[in-house]
Nucleic acid binder design. Sequence first.
DNA 1: TAAATGTTGTGAGGTAGATCACATCAATGG
DNA 2: CCATTGATGTGATCTACCTCACAACATTTA
Lengths: 188, 188
Amino acid sequence: MEEVLRRQIEKIVTLTDEEFRFVLTHFTARTVKKHQYVVQAGDPAPNDHFVVKGLLKSFYTDDLGKTHILQFAMEDWWISDPQAYHNKVNATLHIDCLEDTQLFFISIDNREKLCVELQKMEYFFMKKTTAGYIALQRRILSLMSQKAEERFNQFIQLYPTLLQRVPKALIASYLGISRETLSRMSAH
Amino acid sequence: MEEVLRRQIEKIVTLTDEEFRFVLTHFTARTVKKHQYVVQAGDPAPNDHFVVKGLLKSFYTDDLGKTHILQFAMEDWWISDPQAYHNKVNATLHIDCLEDTQLFFISIDNREKLCVELQKMEYFFMKKTTAGYIALQRRILSLMSQKAEERFNQFIQLYPTLLQRVPKALIASYLGISRETLSRMSAH
DNA sequence: TAAATGTTGTGAGGTAGATCACATCAATGG
DNA sequence: CCATTGATGTGATCTACCTCACAACATTTA
């Protein structure tokens, strides 16, 4: 279990056994069942979650009650409500499990402490955040310049495994299109 | 001029005079005329730009030749092609000036050096990147859950000065709607 | 200062995709 | 193992927004 997290970090910075043990003391392990919530809009959400096994989604519910999926997170991914996490305000997003899930979470306070104590880890988080930023920019461009079917095809290319594990209606919500429209094009 | 940059940094971390002088050695000042490009798709784009005075935009040109504006940047903002910058690959975005502009830019190599030399600065960039990430997430939600007019109203709230300085057609492009549609609603 | 170029408005018509409404079949839990 | 709930497909409308076309000014620039 711990090794999954270690491998994730060591993709970017190398750690001695001792350093990793130290890093680990800042995390907490947790298992969560399908359908359970990890973050609820309105509540504080002081943790960032690393997925060891399982699958979650984060989503926003608008004034009309429609939900919009911001992110899926499977093995090796991180998920949080970043605004609530970094600014210590209440969540505006929900996060729940699509499958039984094992994760490590780290509080924002522990993270800030860890970054000061071990600069490598600040570097690690920096790289992760930057990569996330770039991915979001790509998604914005995709929402603005591509039509539904192109976005879906791109999704299939990018996340073939999610196509298997996630109901189509949720993928539609992630892509910003209706269930029915996506259904009508699954041919290609 | 330098003070603008200093104030920007000191919103997040405090610097001694000496530290700031040191920070400055990693930046280069530059003035750019209206219509000039700062980054061109296809070329390397190893610099991140801090705007002291003026106004720029970053945009993507799709296969059909349509352009989509990702970002405006006026005084106190940063602008780059983040993917090209951080991953040292060629740009996919263009960045050009909407007004005569003064800026400080920092190469990715200088930035990485600076972050190691002065950890405060790594913290500073981390905060900036995180805030940017949160803003992009909000924009994605806005593209998915709001319709054209709501997005425009939100834009006015958020960036009243841009409404003055930027042609409506460009704002439309930023919002992912057509010039004509935006024109038809400027009533409200 | 005339010519070229950029900005904004507005009409008319077209369309991608939303919404509503069912139907079928699979999965899950008491 | 039956009953409820979830997943998916598909037809029939509806609509927000796009595209094309043109006009009227404003602003550069030669």
